[in-house]
């Protein structure tokens, strides 16, 4: 056990460096996912019939294939047709587009969970459809989506763990280097698991706190994420 602690003390600085990259990736992916997912969900609910097949195709591809395939297509495949990204950019784009597909589904669910009467009442006091969406439906949907969105955040922390396969210097990448330098794979990955555990535990606590803070009576219908 003391051996493990000694190793941990030695490995931790490097791993924490990687953890920072992991967190940056998570944050970036969530933001990109939000920028893609929210408008996409609006298109899905309110958009014309014409755009639906495009939305469906996007969702099918990103929800129907492993993240790893997406990452390899973006990083190794796209250069073949002249579109190449740095490792970091490929990671952000892949994770972001993937999260966008999932976030779209969460937002869509939340928008549809807001009762139709809300829009009718909004139109009834003279709001345009756009105003109704912006001032009445979306504020409620955004609250309803918080639980699913929190789960997406947690899931994203874990999903970033594969980007080391294109040598992005995240937590897993540091672990891989350390484990082969020291011939200590088990200790290293147990340490990594502990870091993820702490990270996820901490984020869950924070998110729960935020959820309680933002709670509006009668508007807390839970929606689960992936």
């Amino acid at each position: 056990m003391t051996e493990f602690f000694a190793y941990a003390a030695m490995a931790l600085p490097d791993l924490l460096q990687g953890t920072v990259v992991t967190l940056k990736l998570t944050a970036g992916a969530l933001v990109i996912g939000l920028v893609i997912g929210l408008p996409l969900s609006l298109l899905r609910v309110y958009g014309r019939k014409l755009v639906q097949p495009v939305c469906t195709a996007y969702l099918t591809v990103f929800r129907g294939t492993p993240l790893l395939v997406q990452l390899f297509v973006v990083y190794y495949g796209l250069p073949e047709i002249g579109v190449s990204f740095s490792r970091m950019a490929a990671a952000f784009i892949t994770l972001g587009c993937n999260s966008g597909a999932y976030q779209c589904e969460y937002f869509r669910g939340a928008i549809q969970a807001v009762s139709k009467g809300q829009m009718t009442a909004a139109r009834g006091i003279g709001m345009s459809r756009f105003q109704g969406i912006r001032h009445i439906v979306l504020p409620q949907a955004l609250r309803l989506v918080i639980p699913a969105w929190s789960n997406e955040l947690i899931a994203m922390v874990k999903y970033t763990a594969i980007v080391f396969l294109i040598a992005v210097p995240d937590l897993m990448n540091k672990a891989k280097i350390l484990s082969s330098q020291n011939f200590a794979p088990i200790q290293t990955y147990v340490l990594v698991a502990l870091i993820y555990l702490v990270l996820v535990g901490f984020l869950s606590l924070v998110l729960h706190g935020i959820q309680r803070k933002l709670a509006v009576p009668g508007l807390d219908a839970g929606m689960e994420g992936r």
């Binding site: 009467g117 809300q118 909004a122 003279g126 709001m127 105003q131 409620q140 509006v216 508007l219």
Partner: peptide, 30 residues
Amino acid sequence: RRQMGMVFQEFNLFNHLTVLGNVTVGMTKV
């Protein structure tokens, strides 16, 4: 529509707004 008031059987109050917010939202946004 903004010249005619409508009251619904199912109330359709805006759930995310307070009582005051429900009454002001039309005045400020519309």
